[in-house]
Deep mutational scan, measured.
Amino acid sequence: VDYIVEYDYDAQHDDELTIRKGDIIKNVKKLEEEGWLEGELNGKRGMFPDNFVKEIK
């Protein structure tokens, strides 16, 4: 499942992704941690907030 970024987010920890509006995040999975998703961007896998992105259908 792929998501498109709607709002910029700067990573706060090493396991998070810095994302920018218009980025496409690939292979996204829901995490047990409420409010977070995990996906791949530019060869890096990491977490990001689910309210900054929208699923591409």
Rank of each mutant, 00 (worst) to 15 (best):
N51T: 14
F52S: 05
E55M: 07
Y3G: 03
D14I: 14
Y3L: 04
L41W: 10
A11L: 04
F52T: 05
L37I: 05
N42V: 06
V1N: 12
F52L: 08
R45K: 06
E32A: 10
E16K: 04
F48H: 00
G39Q: 00
E34R: 14
G22D: 05
T18R: 08
N27K: 07
G46A: 06
R20F: 04
E16W: 05
E6A: 08
L41R: 04
I25R: 00
D23N: 10
D2Q: 15
D15Y: 13
L31W: 08
E55K: 06
N42Q: 10
K30E: 07
A11P: 11
D10Q: 11
K44I: 09
K44G: 06
F48P: 01
V28G: 13
V1K: 11
D2K: 15
H13L: 13
L31P: 14
L17W: 01
K29F: 15
Y3S: 03
D14P: 14
E33T: 08
K57A: 15
L37D: 04
D14N: 12
D2H: 13
G39K: 00
Y9D: 00
G35V: 03
V5E: 00
L31V: 13
H13P: 01
L41S: 06
Q12A: 10
I25K: 00
R20L: 04
F52R: 06
E38S: 13
Y7R: 15
G43N: 10
L31R: 12
N42K: 13
K54M: 09
E38N: 10
V28P: 03
E40A: 10
K29I: 12
E40D: 11
K54Y: 05
G39E: 00
E33W: 12
R20Y: 04
F48T: 01
D23Y: 06
P49F: 12
I24Y: 06
V1Y: 13
N51K: 14
D2A: 15
M47I: 10
E32Y: 08
E32S: 14
K54G: 04
K30R: 07
K29V: 12
K30M: 09
D23R: 03
E34L: 11
G43P: 01
D10E: 08
M47N: 07
E16N: 03
E34I: 10
E32W: 11
Y9A: 02
K57N: 15
V53W: 04
V28I: 05
Y3A: 10
K26Y: 15
N51P: 05
N42T: 07
D10W: 11
V1I: 10
E55S: 03
D50A: 15
